[in-house]
Simulated assay, not measured.
Amino acid sequence: MQSSGKISGYQLSLLFFTFIVSTLILSVPGIMVAFAKQNAWLSILPASLTGIVNIYVLTALSRRYPGQSIMQYTAVICGKWGGKLVGVFFTYYLFFFISSTVNEHARFLNNVLLMNTPSLVLIITLLLLCGLAVLAGVETIGRCNEIIVLIVVMLLLPIFIFSIRDADPARLFPVLAEGLVPVIKGSVVPSAWMSQFFFLGWFLPHLNEKPQQVRKKLLTALCGIVLLIMAIDALTIMVFGPITPRMNFAFLNVIKYTDIIGPLERLEAIAIMIWILGIFIKVAMLLYMLCISATQLFGANNYRKTVVPITVLSAVGSVWIFKNAAGFQIWITFTYPILALFMQSLLPCLLLAIDTIKAKLVSH
């Protein structure tokens, strides 16, 4: 398969920071508060365990099979036909994932900015830009993201600074009044996002350093995600308190509530900019992984030949997948965490366990 360039461990860690944070900061805080109430800001700590496990598991597998993606070494571990079957699951999962993400993007913009714009226009526009990025290669996506992360951080800082005056720290108390059970319940949904380090399986082959050397950088990115979500959850609770679970985009409402006298009084434009920049990187990464998976599944030698048909197929899937916002909300609250537990956490652990057992049997 034709190479699409190399990226550094620093670029890879920033890519996954954006990949996870882009949809997590707007969609999930309200769900976390619904389960954990005023202690929702603590729920991200147990949720991060899935991210830690996946970082270690995927880098361990990549070290054993250097230069191979998870699609390729799955065929080695599970055998030809078993590997093909798992590869089909991976490919369909990526197709479902990109369809739901683009669908969410269109609904978000329809709700907050472009009410009269057909969702199909928003879907095609995003996928067209992401398709061009995928054609340019993973190195281009990594370099774009370095600039995007800097912009996002610079946009988030004034939001935190100007929102503090409307925050009431008393709403964060009492801490752990009902024990750890609500905190654990609140961690279930964000744990699905944290386990998205599973997608390292497609990007580690493009790393220009050894997988074990990038672990610290990936763990640093994970720590950055945890601190950011803790800050967003705490700020949202301090501003809105118990009414937070009633909001679909809780952090967006914090930004709307923040009032600055002068030309910056409409701060929701910042939230929309953060969303668009982040979702561009996330969808580009997903589209790249889907093209790689299809190429390796069918034995082609150049993933770029699949970009156009897969982009068109993704647009169809994005229109078809969810008919309304209620269906999407039920999916991310109840269905996706279960699906992510199996596909993003248990399956890579199972691959590592099978490979370890096979290696021990061969050595004996």
Rank of each mutant, 00 (worst) to 15 (best):
2 Q>N: 15
3 S>P: 08
10 Y>P: 11
12 L>G: 15
15 L>R: 12
20 I>N: 06
20 I>C: 02
22 S>F: 06
23 T>Y: 04
28 V>D: 01
29 P>Q: 03
33 V>I: 08
34 A>H: 11
36 A>C: 07
37 K>W: 01
40 A>M: 05
40 A>H: 00
47 A>N: 12
50 T>C: 00
55 I>N: 09
56 Y>F: 11
56 Y>S: 04
56 Y>V: 12
58 L>Y: 13
59 T>V: 11
69 S>A: 01
71 M>W: 04
74 T>A: 09
75 A>E: 08
79 G>Q: 03
79 G>A: 03
79 G>D: 04
80 K>C: 06
89 F>N: 09
91 T>D: 10
98 I>H: 01
100 S>K: 14
100 S>Y: 01
105 H>R: 01
107 R>E: 03
109 L>W: 00
109 L>N: 06
111 N>P: 02
112 V>R: 00
114 L>A: 13
114 L>K: 08
116 N>R: 04
119 S>V: 13
125 T>S: 15
125 T>K: 06
127 L>T: 13
128 L>V: 12
132 L>G: 07
133 A>I: 14
139 E>T: 08
142 G>A: 15
148 I>S: 06
153 V>Q: 07
157 L>Q: 08
158 P>W: 08
160 F>S: 00
162 F>T: 12
162 F>A: 07
162 F>E: 13
166 D>P: 01
168 D>G: 02
168 D>N: 07
173 F>D: 10
175 V>C: 11
175 V>W: 09
175 V>N: 13
182 P>V: 02
182 P>W: 01
184 I>H: 14
189 V>E: 15
190 P>K: 08
193 W>H: 12
195 S>I: 10
196 Q>D: 12
201 G>P: 08
210 K>P: 03
210 K>V: 08
211 P>F: 06
215 R>Y: 14
218 L>F: 08
221 A>Q: 14
222 L>S: 11
222 L>R: 03
223 C>I: 12
230 M>P: 08
233 D>R: 10
234 A>I: 01
237 I>T: 10
239 V>Y: 00
240 F>G: 00
242 P>F: 02
253 N>E: 11
261 I>Y: 15
269 A>G: 14
271 A>K: 02
272 I>G: 02
273 M>W: 13
273 M>G: 13
276 I>D: 02
281 I>R: 00
281 I>D: 04
281 I>S: 01
281 I>P: 00
286 L>S: 03
289 M>I: 09
290 L>Q: 10
295 T>F: 00
296 Q>N: 03
297 L>M: 03
299 G>D: 15
300 A>Q: 09
305 K>Q: 12
305 K>F: 14
310 I>R: 00
310 I>W: 04
311 T>E: 05
312 V>M: 10
315 A>S: 15
322 F>C: 05
323 K>S: 13
324 N>S: 07
325 A>K: 02
326 A>Y: 09
336 Y>I: 11
338 I>S: 09
347 L>R: 11
350 L>N: 02
352 L>G: 03
352 L>S: 04
353 A>L: 14
354 I>D: 07
357 I>Q: 07
360 K>Y: 15
364 H>E: 11
